[in-house]
Design a protein around this nucleic acid. Structure first.
Length: 390
DNA sequence: TCTGGGGTCCTAGGACCC
DNA sequence: TCTGGGGTCCTAGGACCC
């Protein structure tokens, strides 16, 4: 039933600029040009809430996504603070994705504000595979693009997205998703060095390829590679590997020894500019859903925690029910004031979507914790049956 | 100013079975 | 009865991303 993902010569990464802020400005044009910070309930004095999106004016003074709202407020007391409006972002995001799909190339959605477009399918074309051949024939990506025309396409994508939604985006182009995503970074922050090595000069569009990869990335820290996080970067640094150049100079066997076969090989490919070139256009089927909450006041009473967990469970069951999915495993997460975070999970005797089947298991899991400190966060997760599981 | 919420994927170890 | 090895299921936890 699920199509096999297809590989593409060109991967175009579309990344909306300051997404939530831009959506707010569409309906409140007076916010254009003034610093805007979206997060929590829009009350910047509220504890335990963080910035979801800061406008560029706010970023200029150091406000970042993920920063506590109160910290942002100290830096920028006169910014406009707005609450999250999830339904509005859902609608705006869907509009953007529809605009992208009008180009006739397959689109893979990555969250609210990002998507990849695959252009010019390569390989995997087997003449005896009728369905495959048809997919290509009806796909505009059967066209051939070069470095110049792909830039023009990217420019048109930006224009069409803006005309149909009023939202600005930046675009990275490469031959795989990871490198295209990194190219978007250069599109958003042009500098003389990258401009000199740009294959074309188009506003907020950049291409990374085998020509400019090393000159632009070689001296950068490994952390700048997509999927290299703080832990992996620290592990590399501990072994004397700080830059992409140094990572390239590290033998594959050494990487496998340190990081295991999977991540070791992945790092070997990634630092050379390699990555994943496939696009899966079908809508994503979630493997799990979860609800978690950090409470304004810590909890110490088990009964209080039980009723809080049941509340989360009820919300979650509603969501899973609305999507007509089934749950095969549930999990409970507890985070204490010391930020110690633990999860316990249990497979259900049989897949279900009944609240009454799930709640006793949630209660049991929560009861299994040895809670010795006040609890700041509770979370409930449902793992969902997917068609592959039958 | 103490550190949100929603996800995915991988690995490791124990239990159990053949 | 003892021993070894392989496969699979289950849970815990780590790491990363937006």
């Amino acid at each position: 039933m699920a199509e096999t993902p297809r590989r593409y010569r060109w991967l175009i990464h579309v990344d909306l600029d300051q997404f939530q802020v831009s959506v707010e400005r569409l309906r409140s044009p007076e916010l254009v040009g003034v610093p805007v910070i979206v997060g929590g309930n829009g009350d910047p004095t509220e504890a335990r809430k963080v910035v979801t999106c800061a406008s560029y004016e706010a970023r200029d003074v150091g406000v970042r996504a993920g920063m506590p709202l109160r910290a942002a407020y100290r830096k920028m007391p006169d910014a406009v603070y707005l609450p999250l409006d999830v339904p509005a972002y859902d609608v705006a995001s869907a509009d953007v994705m529809n605009a992208l799909r009008q180009f006739g190339h397959p689109v893979e959605v990555w969250g609210w504000d990002e998507a990849y477009m695959g252009v010019q399918a390569v390989g995997g074309m087997r003449s005896h595979d009728n369905a495959d051949a048809q997919a290509v024939a009806s796909d505009a990506s059967a066209d051939s693009y070069d470095r110049v025309t792909i830039g023009t396409l990217a420019e048109r994508i930006r224009a069409v997205v803006f005309e149909s939604t009023g939202l600005r985006c930046s675009i990275g182009v490469s031959d795989n998703k990871q490198r295209a995503k990194m190219a978007t970074g250069f599109a958003k922050k042009p500098d003389p060095e990258s401009a000199a090595l740009a294959p074309f000069r188009i506003e907020r569009v950049f291409e990374l390829d085998e020509q400019n990869w090393l000159p632009l990335m070689g001296d950068r820290p490994c952390r700048d590679l997509w999927s290299v996080g703080p832990k992996t970067a620290a592990k590399l640094t501990a072994r004397g590997v700080d830059t992409v150049h140094q990572l390239i100079a590290t033998p594959r066997e050494d990487l496998i020894e340190t990081f295991g076969p999977h991540q070791g090989n992945w790092l070997y490919v990634l630092c050379r500019g390699g990555g994943d070139s496939t696009i899966t256009p079908e809508p994503w089927l979630a493997r799990s859903h979860s609800k978690s909450r950090t409470y304004p006041v810590d909890m110490t009473d088990l009964d209080e925690m039980l009723s809080a967990a049941r509340e989360l469970t009820a919300e979650l069951v509603d969501q899973v029910l609305a999507e007509r999915r089934e749950v095969f495993r549930v999990a409970v997460t507890v985070r204490t004031t010391t930020f110690c975070t633990r999860t316990k999970s249990r497979k259900l005797p049989a897949p279900t979507i009944r609240y009454d089947d799930i709640v006793p298991v949630i209660d049991g899991l929560l009861g299994d914790f040895e809670i010795d400190r006040p609890v700041r966060l509770l979370g409930v997760r449902c793992d969902l049956v997917t068609p592959e599981d039958e």
